[in-house]
Simulated assay, not measured.
Amino acid sequence: MKLQKIDKKLYRSRLNVVIVTCIAVLAASSLAISQTLIFLFPSETGSHFHWNLLGVVVSAIGLAMTLVKLKTHPKMREVAYVWDLKQALNLIYRKKRALDAAAEKGNVDAMLALQFSYDGSRQLWQLDDNTITMDSLNKAQEKLDSLTEEYSVTLDITEYRSEMLKAF
């Protein structure tokens, strides 16, 4: 995955549209499905919990499938990019301990993965206005910078590939 420049205002407005649309579709479709099931199969006891639950589950599955299909739509580009970035960062986070240990020993791929993680996290946090934890990110970046200096390594995050993580 390559980091891309994203317009924050456009991303936020499109994300808000996606969130509001998902909430409205989930509420309307789960209500419609459950009410239809209750009408077709009424319960003598008056409990319709299972039909309501089924309506929510079916609606959520349908909404998820729709989002996957719409992921490539041009109006979803920024939102889909952030979703993909979060998944890529999550893969790195799962291997963070091993990456840190390998970077301490001078492994260039580990340093590259960490640099991608830091740059991606910085972008993500700025897009989401989550700058509270930026200090810890800056400290981690300083540590990585000292390792790259110590081992005379130049990092180019455009060379990062998620396949590199398989080694850790």
Rank of each mutant, 00 (worst) to 15 (best):
V58G: 00
Q4P: 02
A80S: 15
M1P: 07
D109M: 11
R94Q: 15
I61L: 15
K9W: 05
N16A: 14
Y118E: 11
V79D: 00
S59Q: 03
L137A: 01
V58Q: 03
L26C: 07
V108S: 11
L99Q: 01
A102G: 03
Y81D: 00
G120I: 02
S47P: 03
K139I: 15
Q141F: 09
Q115T: 08
L40K: 13
V56M: 13
Q115L: 05
I38V: 11
E44H: 12
G55H: 00
L91W: 10
D109Y: 13
P42Y: 04
E150M: 10
T36G: 10
G46F: 06
L112P: 01
V79L: 03
L137N: 00
M65P: 04
E142H: 13
N138K: 13
S29H: 06
V82M: 09
T133I: 14
R14L: 07
E142K: 14
A167V: 05
A88R: 05
A140P: 01
K75G: 06
D119C: 09
S13W: 05
G106P: 05
G46V: 02
E78T: 07
W51S: 04
K95R: 15
V153D: 04
L63C: 01
M1Y: 07
W51A: 06
I23M: 14
S29Q: 11
I6S: 04
L99P: 03
N52Y: 08
K139T: 13
N52E: 15
S43H: 08
E150L: 11
H73C: 03
K9T: 14
L10M: 11
T36K: 06
M1D: 06
Q141M: 13
A103N: 05
T158Q: 09
M111H: 02
A60Q: 09
S13F: 05
M134G: 02
L127K: 08
K95L: 01
Q87T: 15
V82Q: 05
C22R: 11
W83Q: 12
Y118N: 10
L89N: 14
W51Q: 12
A167N: 12
V56H: 09
R122G: 04
R97A: 12
V25G: 02
L112T: 06
V18Q: 14
A88W: 01
L40F: 13
V17D: 10
L144K: 05
T72M: 08
A24N: 04
F116G: 00
L3P: 04
M134Y: 09
L40V: 08
G62T: 03
E150Y: 13
L165A: 02
G55C: 02
T66L: 15
L85Q: 03
K86L: 12
W51H: 09
A88Q: 14
I19L: 11
K139V: 12
A167G: 08
A101F: 08
G106I: 03
L70K: 10
I19A: 07
K71Y: 09
S43L: 05
L37G: 03
N107Y: 04
K8R: 12
L91M: 14
D129N: 11
K96S: 10
M65I: 12
D128K: 06
S43T: 10
T131A: 08
G62W: 01
V58M: 08
V20A: 15
